[in-house]
């Protein structure tokens, strides 16, 4: 990931700025505390929830997460920056993750990646001009039996050929799972600024935290 830069003229978490995280988001993060011995252990769940709420995890959100977890903001950045899945900058409405593991490469995955770049007019890590898609790669999505594969939102697309890419991009349900979802790591549905990825129709089953 790109190292997040903070504009010195707009300090992260400055007191004048309105909070990014709603009380509902904070409460949802706190609901994970009972699972672990330390509050810090709720950091990955917290970052998943924040990213679902805001679409990415900007520096100010890290400061606010630090408040909720009672840890240093630097500790949040230290963790968040280690993982490829947390984004400090806005992404498109859907993120496309193209597998470039060995199997997918042997089966022609590079051509699929090139076709995506061509149709979206972007390079890796870019976002299409209409804001619909961002494009990243991953070394192996564990879908090797269906290579070449790629992930859009939550959905794994299998045995993709370059000629399939246009059709897949045009499909409005291309990031939606057919299976009933758990909303455990989603932002609470009342949270402001929830991204379009809120495809949790029906399948709310939040039991089970013991």
């Amino acid at each position: 990931m790109a190292w997040p830069t903070i504009d010195r003229n707009q300090p992260a978490g400055d007191s004048g700025a309105a909070p990014l995280l709603s009380e509902a988001v904070r409460e949802k993060i706190r609901s994970f505390f009972a699972r672990y011995e330390t509050k810090r252990a709720a950091l990955l769940p917290a970052l998943h929830i924040v990213q679902d709420a805001l679409g990415h995890v900007p520096p100010q959100a890290m400061v606010e997460v630090a408040e909720v977890l009672d840890i240093a903001p630097a500790a949040v950045l230290d963790t968040a920056s280690f993982y490829t899945h947390f984004w400090t900058h806005p992404k498109g409405a859907q993120v496309i993750v193209v597998c470039r593991g060995l199997t997918c490469e042997v089966l022609g995955g590079n051509a699929v990646l090139e076709e995506l770049k061509r149709l979206l007019g972007i390079d890796e890590h870019g976002t299409s001009a209409d804001g619909r898609y961002s494009l990243v790669t991953e070394d192996c999505l564990a879908g090797c039996d269906h290579g070449p594969c790629l992930l859009i939102g939550e959905k794994l697309h299998r045995r993709v050929r370059p000629e399939d890419v246009a059709r897949i991009l045009a499909d409005p349900d291309n990031g939606r799972l057919a299976y009933e979802r758990s909303t455990l790591f989603d932002a609470p549905s009342s949270a402001p600024g929830e991204p379009g990825a809120g495809n949790g129709t029906g399948g709310v089953h939040e039991k089970g935290s013991g």
Binding site: Y36, L44, T84, H85
Partner: peptide
């Protein structure tokens, strides 16, 4: 409890996995 990772191969190493559950890199 299911603890979802965030994209790091090394978290499959058992102590990397433990650190990750603890909310660390």
């Amino acid at each position: 409890y299911i603890h979802r990772g965030a994209g790091a191969y090394v978290c499959g190493e058992e102590t990397g996995l433990i650190e990750s559950i603890e909310g660390k890199r």
